[in-house]
Design a protein around this nucleic acid. Structure first.
Lengths: 117, 117
DNA sequence: TCTGACACTGTACCCTGGTACAGGGTGCAT
DNA sequence: ATGCACCCTGTACCAGGGTACAGTGTCAGA
């Protein structure tokens, strides 16, 4: 079965704990995977990208709920309604604002390291 | 007393709740302010910048402990040791990495909104 | 075929970052 | 002199995001 991954393999590849994977599943952040005869989860390799996205976004201060929204957007570009676009634009604004804030912090740190010469 | 601010005034100006201010004080994120005769906290206007920094950093996913570190660095450029510089550079690396991640998300969102035309 | 590492479920627990009282004092505006 | 809004302390509680069992089943290698 090189096609699908177990919980532990996924954990190793993403750096997300096995229990957290179960937690994300309960929260609907990742779809319930198919199961083997004996009940083992068999994740399609696909979810790797999704999990890496979740990890990145979480690290940037997005809540799991916000991440869920972002994933909805990402998945739904077929549902190209004006509402989806509005949501995406709002999120985009948020992201851009975060970037500005990071830049401020970066500048401060750069000044600091420069001063430490 | 236009020179110093009460907890409530500070809360209004920063958007951080009065109880959270007390919490930050306990955690050492802001210094214990001087008190009036009757025990009221009298914050010097100075702390405004510090609090805005805290708020920004928190929004970017830094924990209060990390923020405390960042503030240490910021305050200590007199203690210009190689160690401080190293710490600052490590943090800087982290910040830059976060910016890259935000950029990825931004690109995804931009593609999305463009596709929703 | 047995043993060790992993998987399953459910439930309990934990840390972080606050928020919400309760029970009291202050201060200014009318 | 009396509200009313705000401040004080301490303690209890809460939500989010996991983490840790306990008890049991599975599977791959020696």
């Amino acid at each position: 079965m090189m096609e699908s991954l177990t919980r532990g393999q996924l954990a190793k590849k993403t750096g997300i704990g096995t229990e957290a994977l179960r937690f994300y599943e309960r929260k609907g952040l990742i779809p319930d995977p198919p199961r083997s005869e004996s009940g083992y989860r068999l994740y399609p390799a696909l979810v790797l990208g999704r999990l890496r996205f979740i990890k990145r976004a979480k690290n940037l201060g997005f809540s799991l709920e916000e991440i869920s929204d972002l994933l909805q957007l990402r998945v739904d570009p077929s549902t190209t309604s004006a509402q989806v676009r509005e949501k995406a634009e709002a999120k985009l604004e948020e992201v851009v604002s975060k970037m500005r804030d990071l830049e401020k912090i970066r500048n401060a740190l750069e000044k600091l390291t420069a001063a430490c010469r």
